[in-house]
Design a protein around this nucleic acid. Structure first.
Length: 554
DNA sequence: CACATTGGCGCC
DNA sequence: AGGGCGCCAATGTG
C-alpha cells in the first residue's frame, strides 16, 4: 500500500474514505471511516507505513496531533502541486497544461489553535482544497514519472511534504519559552511593564532626552515625518530617520535617539503584548508556512518566529532536566554552490570547518572578511563596493561556481526561469516586466524604456542568481531536518524538533540523551549531502551546541 | 470606516 | 553592497 488517500465523504459530513493507491496512483480498496474515528483509523493503518495523501497538511494534521498521533510520511497535494505546476522539468505534463484550479489556491483557513487543551475536540477541516484528490495524485505522479529528472522531483516532493509534517508538529509542540525570563529581560532594558500599556519608563526618559537635544518639547517621536522635520529644523542634514543616517551625525541627539529606536522596536515587536499573544503555558507556537517563499524557504504567519531578535533569545529555555541542541549549517549557501557546480577548488575550501578561512588559506583573498564579502557578492549579485572589487579573484579561483551563478543571472535577465538542484523553478517575471521589455525592443537602445528595461533585467537577474543557491540550500535543509526527525524517533525520551530557521535547527531533548541527539544532527547533515549530491567532496559543516537557553548557542 | 502601502528594521 | 522574508506603526486611499 504505497499511498493512502484521505478523502472527504460527501454523503456523510465529517466522515472520510481512506482510498488505497499503487505507486502510479491507480486506486485500490476503499475503507470508509465514520465521523470522529479518523484518528483511530490512522493509528491502525500507520503500522503499514503508507504515504498518507491529503489536500493540505496544515489543516489535516493538527487534529491528529491534538489526538496524540504522529505519522511518518505524507504527500501534501497542495504543496506538491505548486512545485510541479511551475517546474520546468514537468512543463510538458498534463498537470502543467491544465487551467488553474482550486489546487493553485494558497493555504486555506487559519491554523488550528493549539494553545489550550480545553478545545481538543477534533475540528472539522472543512471542504477539500481540490475537487478530486485521487485524480490530482495520479496527475502529479504522471508528471513526475514523465519528467526529465523523476528521482530529483520525488526527493523534492517527499522533502517538502515531510517539512509540512514537521511544521505542524513544531507548532503543536511549541518552543520552550520562559515568560519569566522574557519579562525580566524587558524590565531590565525598558523598565517595568506599564500598567495601562503606556510607554515604559526607560523609553520615556530617552524620549525626553531626544526632545531636549532637539529643542522640541512636544515632539511625537513615533511619527517618522515629525521626527524628520525636527531633525532638519535642528540643522541636521538627514533625508530619512534611518539608523545609519542618525549614526553618522555628531550631535547630542544621536545616542538617545538610537537607543530609543532600538528599544521601541523591541517593545513593539517582541514586548509584553507579543508575549501575551504568542506564548501560552511556557510554549511559543509560531505558525510556520512551508513553501511560503518562492525559493522554497519557509515563511511564518504571525509571531515572527523567523525574526526572533538576539535580544530575546535568552527567554528560550529548556525545561528542567532537558537541554536544547542548537545546530546551524556553517556557510551553507557557499557549500551548496560548491556542490551544485562541482567546483573542486571550492570544495577544497569547504573542507575547512569555516569555509571562509578555507578561502583565505588557499590564498584567494587576504582576510576572512574579504572572503565572506566576495562569496556573498557572488551569490547575491553585488555590483558595487568591496564585494564587486573582489569578484575577479573569485572568478579565477572558482570558475565553475561563479559560472553557475552567472549563468543563472543571465537567464533571469532574459526573462527565463531557473531551477534549483532538485527542480523547483523560479516564477516568470510579471506582465509589467514583459511589457517594458517589449517597449524597449521597439524603441531602440537609447530610449528611456530601454534603460528601465536593462535595470529591471539586472534586478531580475540578481533574483534568479540567488534563487538557485538559496532554493537548493532550502532543499538541503529540508532533507537535513527530515533525516533528523527520523533519527530522533529512535532515541529515548522523545527528543523533538522545536525550531527551524533556514539553516538552523533546535531540538528539545532530555538531558541524558543530548549527546545522542547532537550526533544525530551531524549524521543527518551528512545524509542530506549524500541525498542531494551523491558522493560530493563537499563537507556540510555544522556548529552544534548543547545548551540550556538559546542565547548560549554561539 | 476598513484596507493597502510605506518606512524602518529584525532575521537568514 | 547584493538575494529572500514578516511585522509594526504611521500614513494614504477608497
Amino acid at each position: 500500500m504505497p499511498y493512502l488517500l484521505v478523502l472527504d465523504d460527501p454523503a456523510h459530513p465529517g466522515a472520510v474514505v481512506l482510498q488505497e493507491a499503487d505507486d502510479t496512483g491507480r486506486p485500490g480498496a476503499r475503507h470508509p471511516v465514520p465521523a470522529g474515528e479518523l484518528a483511530a483509523a490512522v493509528t491502525r493503518y500507520e503500522h503499514e507505513r503508507p504515504r498518507w495523501v491529503w489536500d493540505d497538511t496544515a489543516r489535516r494534521y493538527p487534529p491528529l496531533l491534538a489526538a496524540g498521533m504522529r505519522i511518518e510520511r505524507c504527500h501534501d497535494l497542495r504543496l506538491c502541486h505548486a512545485i510541479l505546476r511551475r517546474s520546468t522539468l514537468t512543463a510538458g505534463s498534463a498537470l502543467a497544461a491544465a487551467p488553474p484550479s482550486a489546487w493553485d489556491a494558497p493555504r486555506s483557513g487559519p491554523p488550528v489553535a493549539v494553545e489550550t487543551s480545553l478545545f481538543d475536540v477534533l475540528p472539522d477541516p472543512g471542504p477539500t482544497a481540490g475537487p478530486d484528490p485521487a485524480a490530482e495524485l495520479r496527475a502529479q505522479l504522471d508528471a513526475v514519472s514523465g519528467s526529465a529528472a523523476p528521482g530529483r522531483l520525488r526527493l523534492l516532493l517527499a522533502a517538502e511534504s515531510t517539512g509540512a509534517l514537521i511544521a505542524a508538529e513544531m507548532q503543536h509542540d511549541g518552543m520552550p519559552w520562559s515568560t519569566r525570563t522574557h519579562d525580566a529581560l524587558l524590565t531590565e532594558l525598558l523598565g517595568p511593564r506599564p500598567a495601562g500599556g503606556g510607554r515604559p519608563a526607560r523609553l520615556e526618559e530617552l524620549a525626553t532626552q531626544v526632545r531636549d537635544a532637539l529643542g522640541q518639547p512636544s515632539l511625537h517621536l513615533d511619527s517618522q515625518p515629525d521626527l524628520l522635520r525636527a531633525l532638519r529644523a535642528a540643522g541636521l542634514e538627514v533625508t530619512s530617520t534611518r539608523t545609519w543616517e542618525i549614526q553618522a551625525l555628531d550631535h547630542p541627539v544621536t545616542a538617545p535617539l538610537l537607543a530609543y529606536k532600538k528599544l521601541s522596536r523591541l517593545l513593539s515587536a517582541n514586548g509584553w503584548a507579543w508575549m501575551d499573544t504568542w506564548v501560552h503555558e511556557g510554549r511559543f507556537h509560531p505558525d510556520y508556512v512551508p513553501g511560503g517563499v518562492v525559493t522554497g524557504r519557509w515563511a511564518t504567519s504571525g509571531g515572527g518566529a523567523l525574526q526572533l531578535p538576539a535580544a530575546v533569545r535568552g527567554a528560550v529555555r529548556a525545561d528542567p532536566g532537558w537541554r536544547l541542541v542548537v545546530a546551524d549549517a556553517a556557510q551553507l549557501e557557499p557549500r551548496v554552490l560548491a556542490a551544485m557546480s562541482g567546483d573542486d577548488a571550492m570544495a577544497s575550501a569547504a573542507r575547512h570547518t569555516d569555509l571562509y578561512e578555507g578561502v583565505v588559506d588557499a590564498g584567494i583573498v587576504a582576510t576572512r572578511k574579504d572572503a565572506k564579502y566576495a562569496m556573498l557578492g557572488a551569490i547575491y549579485g553585488a555590483t558595487t563596493g568591496a564585494s564587486a572589487v573582489l569578484m575577479p579573484r573569485l572568478t579565477t579561483a572558482y570558475p565553475r561556481a561563479v559560472a553557475l551563478v552567472e549563468q543563472a543571472a543571465r537567464s533571469g535577465e532574459r526573462g527565463e526561469q531557473v531551477s534549483t538542484w532538485l527542480g523547483r523553478s523560479s516564477p516568470l517575471p510579471g506582465e509589467a516586466w514583459q511589457a517594458r521589455r517589449r517597449a524597449a525592443a521597439t524603441e531602440g537602445a537609447g530610449s528611456e524604456d530601454a534603460a528601465a528595461a536593462r535595470r529591471q533585467g539586472r534586478d531580475w537577474g540578481r533574483f534568479t542568481r540567488n534563487f538557485v543557491v538559496q532554493g537548493t540550500a532550502a532543499e538541503w535543509a529540508l532533507c537535513w531536518m527530515a533525516s533528523l526527525r527520523r533519527r530522533l524517533r529512535d532515541i529515548d525520551g522523545r527528543p523533538h524538533l522545536v525550531f527551524f530557521l533556514h539553516d538552523e535547527v533546535m531540538v528539545h531533548t532530555p538531558a541524558h540523551v543530548a549527546d545522542q541527539v547532537a550526533q544525530a544532527v551531524r549524521d543527518a547533515a551528512a545524509e542530506a549531502g549524500r541525498l542531494l549530491f551523491g558522493d560530493t567532496p563537499v563537507d556540510f559543516a555544522l556548529q552544534v551546541a548543547v545548551v540550556d537557553s538559546y542565547d548560549q548557542a554561539k
